[in-house]
Nucleic acid binder design. Structure first.
Lengths: 346, 346
DNA sequence: CTGAAAGCGCTAACAT
DNA sequence: ATGTTAGCGCTTTCAG
């Protein structure tokens, strides 16, 4: 298995022609006599020759490798993004170098440096660092993915439309009689948190709804959401409780916190998620959530990066809209038979 | 951003020494005068120099790239495997090239070829092809991952212990009074199906349980499981129904099929999954399942591959045991208050 | 201790 | 239509 691979030179020798002829024959570049081409191709086949991309990349200056740096591949939302990116990458004949930043700046920097050394043609990044300069310093064509477009002006980006998605959720909550939901947000250091919180505040102010929202912080995991919900329940205010979580994993955790205390959803508290991961369809009750088009985002990011790398116009920031998925985790306070719920449990 | 990257030659010029001295200084290989080293390092820093791994790989014959080819990165089980592999890869200073085969031989072959061309040091593969020769033909150090060890003798592999895991599930079912569960298996072409079915047959024969099991085939997705369960329900035999699905996604789909018909679990039918994905904790009822240690599998595979690539002994096939997670999707037919269930709905 | 030079495998000029 | 050559950026002998 481990014996040395044949080079183009070996193929040339076997075929009885020169290296360049083989190169031309195999790549279809430049004129080759029919017979010579045949012999070259046959020799390549016989030897099991596969071109060495390292060498090709070095000559051409393009590696056909691209990087993908996302927070956590085991998070279903990001796994969807990765799948979309992968699918598009094979279509573009690109290979994907995948890394997880785990939401840590040092990891991110480390991965980005690895990508530079690998001489990738570009990278798709959900940035945890918050300065454009830090990113520019790598001198790497970048397409940002996630909710960071505005924070990094000048860089191409694809993300879901956070303000629109948040508005979708808030309006839905409002239609069900919940005017000022409690929030479970991600870690303070992350831009995503800022963008989400901002969107909530703006829309609530606009609607004239209350401003002193209950806010809990968690780390985008199920356990985090569970703990945050537990704290919310400890400090519960009078009246019905609705919680808007900044991702589905935390929302699912919140559901578990309710279950932990023998409380049920949506009778005792309403929960609204954000992401649209598949698991939300299986929970009980099904998680009502705002779906972000993860797979499409991944595909688009690769397309843009490929375009940018080839100097084709790649377009500015792209923003895909969210979509509300109604399942059963939000109570309708305005329904005829709802008054019983209004008492809450505060 | 896109201006050309500095080479070691640029660093040498700036530092006023030769390329070789810079190389020695930066890599710590060979003797360098303290002053020269300092100047080299400083120049590299000033220029933002990052070594070109393409060139390094070409000289050294090792790319520090490894491939990962799994069926579907968006499947939570495989995402766990990928995460484990990623984590271990950064520890080993390796970069991971990720591909999804979508359970298709052509895709698999395509990806494997891409990996050969990229001159990866080796690859981790959940094989869909079923001949060792096909795999050997690539001349690539391989570590198999999943349930294929025996099918490919001589290749190192890490997998979960299918016979043991299946036995765990079957014994559990038996303890709850279900002797001959219906099966939802994956596509016929896949080895995983064979291994699973085999394990079931063997253990059931051993226990003397019935042999004419109801078997449905699906494609390892939620939708597939849902349809398969629906067919099972259409041809329902008299008596209580228990279903053992070959992965959790299909089990979750089966749960949905039940819900579709207004049936409930475990009252109307019991479901046992296989994988241990996180979503099973949120479903209603919670999915009882046999957990396979995906993350550990991924980590181990990378360790073995790294060892093999360096010529260190990598050990033979490794088999990690499964673990039963009891939640609520299997009825206990033997409990005192169970008789009502025995009537079934057939 | 340091520099010059060869060569990893490939392709694009250039020359035939 | 085909062969020869140079060189991508690096490391590693081999001299000095």
């Amino acid at each position: 298995m481990g014996r040395k691979r044949p080079t183009i030179h070996d193929v040339a020798t076997l075929a009885g022609v020169s290296k360049s002829t083989v190169a031309r024959a195999l790549s279809g570049t430049g004129p080759v006599a029919a017979e010579a081409r045949e012999r070259a191709i046959e020799a390549a086949r016989a030897l099991g020759y596969e071109p060495n991309h390292l060498a090709v990349s070095m000559r051409s200056g393009r590696s056909r490798l691209i990087g993908l740096v996302i927070p956590d591949i085991a998070n279903p939302f990001w796994a969807e993004v990765a799948k979309g990116a992968q699918d598009r990458a094979v279509e573009e004949e690109l290979s994907l170098l995948c890394f997880s930043s785990d939401w840590q700046t040092e990891q991110e920097e480390r991965h980005l440096r690895a990508l530079v050394r690998a001489r990738v043609d570009g990278a798709i990044l959900n940035p945890v660092a918050d300065s454009v300069e830090a990113l520019h310093a790598f001198g790497l064509p970048l397409v940002l993915i996630g909710s960071s477009a505005e924070k990094f002006p000048g860089l191409p980006s694809v993300g879901s439309n956070i303000p629109q998605s948040v508005r979708l959720g808030l309006d839905y909550l409002s239609r069900k009689g919940h005017e000022a939901p409690a929030l479970i947000l991600g870690p303070p250091s992350r831009i995503a948190r800022l963008r989400f919180a901002e969107a909530v505040r703006q829309h609530l102010d606009y609607r004239g709804a209350a401003r002193d929202l209950q806010v809990e912080t968690a780390d985008y995991t199920v356990e985090g959401g569970r703990a945050a919900m537990s704290r919310l329940l400890d400090n519960r205010r009078p009246g019905p409780l609705a919680v808007f979580a900044a991702n589905d994993l935390m929302a699912l955790g919140a559901l578990m916190a309710l279950r932990d205390r023998g409380l049920s959803c949506p009778e005792d508290a309403s929960i609204l998620g954000f992401d649209g991961i598949a698991a939300g369809a299986f929970s009980w009750p099904g998680l009502t959530t705002v779906e972000k088009p993860g797979r499409a985002l991944g595909r688009l990011a690769v397309s843009m990066l490929a375009a940018a790398a080839e100097g084709r116009p790649h377009g500015g920031p792209v923003c895909l809209p969210g979509r509300l998925i109604e399942r059963g985790s939000v109570a309708n306070l305005l329904a005829r038979d709802a008054p019983a719920l209004l008492a809450g449990r505060g």
